[in-house]
Design a protein around this nucleic acid. Structure first.
Lengths: 197, 197
DNA sequence: TTTTGTTGATTGATCAGTCAATTAAAAATA
DNA sequence: TATTTTTAATTGACTGATCAATCAACAAAA
């Protein structure tokens, strides 16, 4: 039953299946056959469209990054003040879309895989740099550059750390509490600066 | 050349080899043969002493936890005040012994693997609980219980997050800067409480 | 001679990746 | 319009490689 123009649909289905498979199993050790099966096609077709497995994984990671990027841009659009920009960046990362258990597991698995795969590593650095610069754009008007750098680093670490903890314990930090934890850090730092300059 | 009493030596050598192999390769996807080879024995011997591979991994994780636990106890012994207890816990985690790239990679890999293995998961929770309670013992005399809980959660997330970032970028957060980042958070929080109770 | 240490060889399972073959839609040709 | 040809979609069957795990056999210490 070959319909024409299936390629984009299949690619998307395969990438989605990759995320959900990795998310459910909590590891990148998933077979192409399982992913393909979940997407409703044969493993041969997955290889037909993506070539080696590694490429499917890379495409999946790009999708995750693209989703996060889109959400971030959209959130920043609504931020009027620098402080709001910082909040927007924080909120996006604990969004319903990003902070799903499935997605969190996938991120974590990719972090590990990035240790071996230069390309995945590069993709992750793109994400890290983007996060950093988004945070800096909000922080620089609020404090000195060294302090802003330090805060951006801490916020990024808090986000990553809360992801890990979310993956480990079953959902202990929910989106709201995770967000408030990071916001609380930002407030504490800014207040201290206001009180004792 | 079978000397007697080799078992403990071989076990230790195999566990050490497991850590360094995982650390270097950055993944738990290492073969028993490679680990055994690094320990200077055959893969058959590894199975002889540990049975299935999973058990070797568990033993390795227990070793990592035990090392961290030992370091922590020793660091806490020298802490006179509650605030010093908090510092001691933080410092230990970014210790030369714990924060080696090899160890960091191994921890990260185990975090991922814990998603599938109930036993590894349980071991990680032991670590998390111990960290939490150690932090609380220092924080409770300094602030209210809810605030202490929140701070302990944030400190733990910061530690985990800095580990991840260490694994990703090549060594950006060195022990000293990682420590000072977390200490800075603690100071900011405590000062805020002192200023506006 | 019993126990402990040790390994080479082997087995069985799992998987990524390939390929030839099949179907049907689309395009070209008559 | 009717046909032939090309192209896209799809898979089952297969191959080759990798590895965990086993086992029989051997060496040396007790």
């Amino acid at each position: 039953m070959p319909k024409i123009g299936m390629e984009p649909l299949r690619r998307k289905a395969l990438i989605d299946a990759t995320i959900s498979t990795i998310g459910e199993r909590g590891t990148l050790n998933v077979t192409v056959a399982e992913i393909a099966g979940r997407a409703g096609v044969s493993s041969a077709l997955a290889h037909h469209y993506f070539g080696p497995k590694e490429e499917l994984l890379q495409a999946t990671m790009r999708q995750l990054l693209a989703d996060l990027g889109r959400d971030t841009v959209s959130a920043l659009r609504g931020a009027a003040t620098p402080r709001e920009r910082v909040s927007a960046v924080i909120t996006v990362n604990f969004n319903a879309g990003q902070f799903r258990e499935e997605t969190v597991h996938a991120w974590l698995a990719f972090y590990v895989e990035a240790q071996n795969s230069p390309l995945l590593r590069r993709l992750l650095r793109v994400y890290a740099r983007r996060l950093h610069s988004n945070l800096m754009s909000g922080l620089l008007p609020l404090t000195s550059r060294p302090e802003a750098e330090r805060m951006a680093e801490a916020i990024a670490a808090l986000i990553d750390g809360l992801y890990i903890r979310r993956a480990l314990r079953d959902g202990l930090p929910n989106p709201a509490s995770a967000t408030s934890l990071v916001e609380d850090y930002v407030d504490a730092k800014l207040e201290r600066q206001a009180n004792a300059p």
